[in-house]
Nucleic acid binder design. Structure first.
Lengths: 193, 193
DNA sequence: TTCGTTGTGTACTTCTAAGTACAGAATATG
DNA sequence: CATATTCTGTACTTAGAAGTACACAACGAA
C-alpha cells in the first residue's frame, strides 16, 4: 500500500467545524459550500473523506453524542448521593439552556424534531443516544435506590429526568434566564426523595 | 369595489392542508409544489392569497397556536381542583406524544428547534404562544394556590410544567409507549401538592 | 528519476424549488 | 351586452446547492 499524497487536513477538525455549522443553522440550511468556505477543504475532498452530506452529518452527530455521553458517564459515576451527581449533570447543561448559547439548543434534539431528517440511520443514532443516556441515569438511581423513599421508582424517574432534560433544551431556543432554568432543576430534584 | 372573479378555494382549507404537510415534513422539506399538488391550488393563487412561503408558514403556525391555546383555555378554565384540570390538559397531549401520531411531535416545537427558521416574526409568534400558555397555567395555579402546600410556588411550577410539556413533545418523535408518557405525567403531578 | 497512487482544486452538470409573466377565465356593474 | 377587475393555470426564469469530471499536485517505492 502506497501512502501517495497525504491529506492536507485533519478530518476531526472538519467534523468540528461542520458540527458548529450544523448546530447553528441546521442540516438543511447548511450547504457543503458553507463548510468548504469555513474549513478551506474543497467539496471533492469532503466527499472522499466523509461520503455525501447525509453521511457527513451522521458522523458529526455521532461525534456529538459520544462527547455528551462521555461527559455524562464521568459525572454520573462520581461518588456521593445520586441526587447530587444528577443535579450536577443537569446543571452542566444550563449554559446550553439559557442565554447566548441557548439559541442553538441541542444538536440531537434539533435533529430529532426535524421532519426532513428521517433517514433510518439518523433515527437509530438518536434513539441509541437517548437509550444510553437514560440507562446511565436509571442504573445510578437503581444502585442508589436505598437513598430514596419507600416506593421510589428509579425507572420512571430516569425517564422523567430525560423528559425534563429534553424540555429544557427544546425551550433553550428562547434564551430563557439561567435563574429560571435553575429553579426548574431544583424543583424537579425534589422528585428524588 | 368590484368582487370580480371570486376565489375558487377556501383559504382555510389550504391552511389546513399546508399545516399537515409542514407538520409532517418540516418547513424546508415542504415545497410549494407539494402544497399545490395536495390542495389543487396553483402557485400564483397561493402567492396572491398568502404571500411567500415564509408568510404562508407564519399563518399556518399562528393558526396552529390559536387552536392549541383555545383548547387550553377551555380545559384550564374548568371548575374543580387545579391539579385535575392541569392533569387533564397534559393528558390530552398523550396521543401526540406517543405512538403513530407522536412521530410529528409539535409543530411549534419543531419550528422552534429548526435553526433555519430564524425570521424574527416566527420567533415572536412562538415566544408569544409559549408566554400565553404559561400564563394560563400560572394564573390557574395562583388562583388555586390555597389548594397546595405552604411555600408552593405557582410561577416556578407553571414553568416546570411548560418544560415537561416541551420535553414530552420533543421526545415524541421516538414514538414512546403511551404508558410511559402517562407515568411521567403522574410523577410530575406529584409536584402539585 | 520515474512511475503508480491518492489527494486537491476548478469548473462543470443537474436538479429542485422559489417566485413570476402573461394570457385567458369568471364575476359585478353599468 | 360590454367592460373593468380579479383570480387561475401554464410555462417560464432564476438561484442555489448537491454531486462529479478531469487535470494537476504530492507523496512512496523502485
Amino acid at each position: 500500500m502506497d501512502m501517495a499524497r497525504p491529506r492536507s487536513f485533519d478530518p476531526d477538525d472538519v467534523l468540528e467545524i461542520a458540527r458548529q455549522m450544523f448546530w447553528q443553522k441546521g442540516f438543511q440550511a447548511t450547504s457543503l459550500d458553507d463548510i468548504t468556505a469555513a474549513s478551506g477543504v474543497a467539496k471533492p475532498s469532503l466527499y472522499a473523506a466523509f461520503g455525501d452530506k447525509n453521511a457527513l452529518f451522521l458522523k458529526v452527530l455521532d461525534r456529538y453524542h459520544d462527547g455528551i455521553l462521555g461527559w455524562a458517564e464521568r459525572v454520573l459515576a462520581q461518588p456521593g448521593p445520586a441526587r447530587d451527581v444528577i443535579r450536577q449533570w443537569l446543571t452542566g447543561f444550563i449554559p446550553y439552556c439559557s442565554g447566548e448559547k441557548g439559541q442553538r439548543g441541542c444538536l440531537s434534539i434539533n435533529s430529532a424534531t426535524d421532519g426532513s431528517l428521517d433517514q433510518v440511520e439518523l433515527r437509530k443514532s438518536i434513539e441509541r443516544y437517548n437509550r444510553r443516556l437514560e440507562e446511565l441515569l436509571r442504573t445510578r438511581l437503581r444502585t442508589d435506590r436505598a437513598q430514596f423513599r419507600k416506593g421510589f421508582d428509579p425507572d420512571v424517574t430516569a425517564h422523567t429526568i430525560m423528559v425534563v432534560h429534553a424540555g429544557l433544551l427544546a425551550l433553550a431556543h428562547q434564551r430563557p434566564d439561567s435563574k429560571q432554568v435553575k429553579a426548574v432543576i431544583d424543583q424537579v430534584m425534589s422528585l428524588l426523595a
